[in-house]
């Protein structure tokens, strides 16, 4: 055996083994599973080794599954709600924070804190905030002497449940975008702003004409990761609505008329419900493959966008490398 290979194998083997078994093989296995289904003869105690080949049946079913199409449309709606709000909030916070105000470090940490907390737990807290009667909204409207806005709380309202979820997710997640924007804004050379000052530009003009265009890569990254995040959104739906409230759509709606759909049933949650609740493993695998086909171009885009434009990753590397060099210098 090649000598170099002999020395590297002990280093590589543990990671490669786990990678092969739990990432590489599943990627292939997922596709295989999508051609299988459980029949009445399947032994449910060892279901995965006893499913039968069914050809394209799962995909055929998927092609006519209005619930799946509905979940994709709801995912798009969710993305349209979350992404612009998230970008606006993170960008505003970042551009305010970049002014070196007193306590900037505290604010940076405070905005970032919700981001490291468990989404499921935070979503549970939001159900308390949104709760009917005891919740914050109902108490505030009652204190102001107004009528209740939502009969059974915002999360039971077919029109407002999704915006309610979106607000809670944006408030939790915007710290992440803020940090990225902040790093990007701090990388913009000061003299550009000074030149604009000399030309008599207003603060708003400086924001729209200098800051916004120069942080575009981050915006692109947030859009792409936002769409991917929406496709995979699960914990917030599980904690807050479970895909409810269900509505039977009027016949006047094309394609979906007469069907009953969950108004917050996003594709990631739909996958989970087919997988975990209905235990249709083969079908769930087919949904996974379909979602993967949808998300792969976006994933690739985000990967390369981050590779070429990730200021913070490069910043982090350079900070650490500097430290490293000073330590090595001492060591030598």
């Amino acid at each position: 055996m090649n000598r170099s290979l002999k020395t590297v194998i002990p280093f590589l083997l543990p990671f490669t083994a786990v990678f092969a078994v739990f990432l590489l093989y599943p990627a292939v296995y997922s596709v295989y599973l999508s051609f299988l289904k459980a029949t009445i003869y399947t032994d449910l105690s060892r279901i995965f080794s006893d499913m039968k080949w069914c050809g394209l049946e799962n995909y055929q079913k998927l092609l006519y599954d209005t619930n799946f199409y509905w979940s994709l449309i709801m995912t798009l709606y969710y993305a349209v709600l979350v992404i612009p709000m998230n970008i606006a909030l993170s960008l505003v916070l970042a551009s305010i924070l970049s002014n070196e105000l007193p306590g900037a470090k505290f604010f940076r940490a405070a905005f970032y804190l919700p981001n490291v907390l468990d989404l499921f737990v935070i979503a549970v807290v939001w159900t308390a905030i949104y709760a009917p009667n005891y919740g914050v909204i109902d108490q505030l409207t009652a204190a102001l002497g107004l009528e209740k806005i939502f009969e059974n709380g915002i999360l039971a309202d077919p029109w407002w449940a999704m915006p309610g979820i979106a607000v809670s997710v944006v408030l939790k997640g915007s710290g992440f975008g803020m940090i990225l924007y902040l790093a990007a804004i701090q990388n913009i050379p000061r003299d550009i702003y000074e030149a604009a000052d000399i030309d008599g530009a207003s603060a708003w003009q400086k924001f729209t004409k200098i800051t916004v265009p120069l942080v575009k890569p981050i915006t692109l990254l947030l859009v792409v990761t936002g769409i991917l995040g929406s496709l995979m959104a699960f914990s917030e739906i599980y904690a807050m609505t479970g895909g409810r409230p269900y509505e039977t759509l009027p016949d006047s709606i094309p394609f979906f008329g007469g069907t009953t759909q969950g108004t917050t049933n996003l594709s990631g949650y739909y996958l989970f419900s087919k997988f975990y609740v209905a235990q249709e493993y083969g079908y769930a695998a087919a949904i996974s493959v379909a979602l993967l086909i949808i998300s792969l171009p976006l994933s690739i885009l985000s990967f390369f966008a981050f590779q070429s434009e990730g200021p913070s990753l490069r910043k982090l590397s350079s900070i650490l490398l500097k430290k490293l060099r000073s330590r090595t210098a001492k060591a030598i």
Binding site: N2, L5, M232, F275
Partner: peptide, 29 residues
């Protein structure tokens, strides 16, 4: 070592698959 680049990019390509896609097969395993 031979195959270093191939192995590295095989690893990296896994980053592009969203985690939830592994849910069903990993659970099966």
């Amino acid at each position: 070592f031979p195959g270093k680049q191939v192995l590295f990019w095989t690893f990296m390509s896994a980053m592009m698959i969203p985690g939830m896609m592994f849910m069903v097969p990993q659970f099966a395993l």
